[in-house]
Design a protein around this nucleic acid. Structure first.
Lengths: 220, 220
DNA sequence: TTCCAACTGTACACCGCGTACAGGTTATCG
DNA sequence: CGATAACCTGTACGCGGTGTACAGTTGGAA
């Protein structure tokens, strides 16, 4: 609750006149989730959401600018703690479990939405930006905690930027997810994290030095 | 040339009647590229292509199933050797140069198409599949050669599956490209490849062992 | 009780897709 | 040379989804 009111596009209620219907909002989000579990974002129409929610299409357009943002809202409202953030005492195990969990979720119907938001974002900067702010960064902040623990325990090189570490761990699987060119099996999660930790270079071969990275785009 | 005839959806010419107009095809591809350099794939309409190409819309639909596949065709026809495949004698340098080159191309207007095809592919399996077959796999085959050289020279661990290696190197940057959450600067390419080679784990810390991966989905 | 804003339902303008149809054009075959 | 077949062109159109307009109804706060 209180989700929508944080949105920049939500009109303010001036406390006079009829109150906003809470059931209508909840019903819209619920109907949207129902449909998203069965069809892709592109296939779903605003009309279908309105109909299933038992709400007028006009009402939807009153509170959300378009279908995609209804979907993003529904996605966020349902995503609270659906993916594990483990704390096993080993960064390697933490990341492996996490990547496995994320990957298996992303294979699910609702998880596919992840890719669909990115897809819509390619032609709609607004939704991509909102997706980053309200979803991706939250995820990364949580994952950065796992990284931090690993650094403090002396398991992870502290000279490598955390942004790079996170992208190295999650990027490859997300790449596979989006293009479908590679396996998303559980073993692969482990193999990838293992490779990221150990490096692909042979220990003897020492040309590949890790340069100290310049700090960039610090998030608050 | 001869590009279109390889397509499964291209009708066969029975050698009777008027011949297919080569200028029309070339004109369509050229017009499409022109438009794609200025607008996103989603913004471009079939009519606009037809108009700019000086060709009837019907003709386009005769040879291509839809706009996206016209664009893919145009993209492929223009992409031959636009990105470097270096051979410096060092796998680390090769991959760094390559990633840098790829990234800078993907930042360009035409390069953005990469993400837009993946985006369309999220709701259209056919185009995603064609994108993999005709673009991605060709790229990866070429990159695998760099990997192979590295393995033979003793620079890269041979026990790590090449699919994983390639995804580790390219996945993170593509992830950044698609979501826009991270920097795409040249320094980052080098830092990423360096991290992939050296690993993020501290040398002393030895829990992260690389398991021998099961072979999967061998491509011909 | 008044008043305002949220709701409902229908209608509609707009746009892009893909097809249909009626013509005109250029090649090969007999 | 004429017939035939497949290409091309142009216009028109049905379809479906978007987002808005408008008229009317409902409910809560002053």
């Amino acid at each position: 609750m209180g989700q929508i009111t944080e949105f920049p596009f939500a009109p303010a209620n001036k406390c006079r006149g009829r109150q906003r219907s809470v059931e209508a909002e909840a019903s819209v989000l619920k109907a949207t989730l129902y449909l998203l579990e069965r069809k892709s974002l592109r296939e779903i129409t605003t009309e279908a959401i309105a109909q299933r929610a038992g709400v007028s299409k006009t009402t939807i357009y009153k509170w959300w600018p378009n279908k995609n943002l209804v979907a993003l809202d529904a996605y966020l409202s349902s995503m609270t703690a659906r993916v594990v953030m483990p704390d096993t005492g080993s960064a390697f195990k933490d990341f492996t479990l996490q990547l496995r969990s994320v990957t298996s979720f992303y294979k699910s119907p609702l998880g596919r939405l992840f890719g669909q938001f990115i897809a819509e974002g390619q032609s709609d900067p607004a939704i991509l930006s909102l997706f980053r702010e309200r979803f991706l960064y939250a995820r990364r902040d949580a994952a950065r905690v796992m990284w931090q623990r690993g650094v403090m325990r002396g398991e992870i090189r502290k000279e490598i930027d955390s942004e790079i570490v996170l992208d190295l761990i999650y990027g490859p699987m997300i790449f596979r997810l989006l293009t479908g060119h590679g396996s998303l099996a559980e073993d692969d999660s482990e193999a990838m994290v293992a490779a990221v930790f150990a490096g692909i270079g042979l220990p003897g071969y020492k040309e590949a030095k890790v340069p100290t990275p310049r700090r960039r785009q610090k998030k608050s």
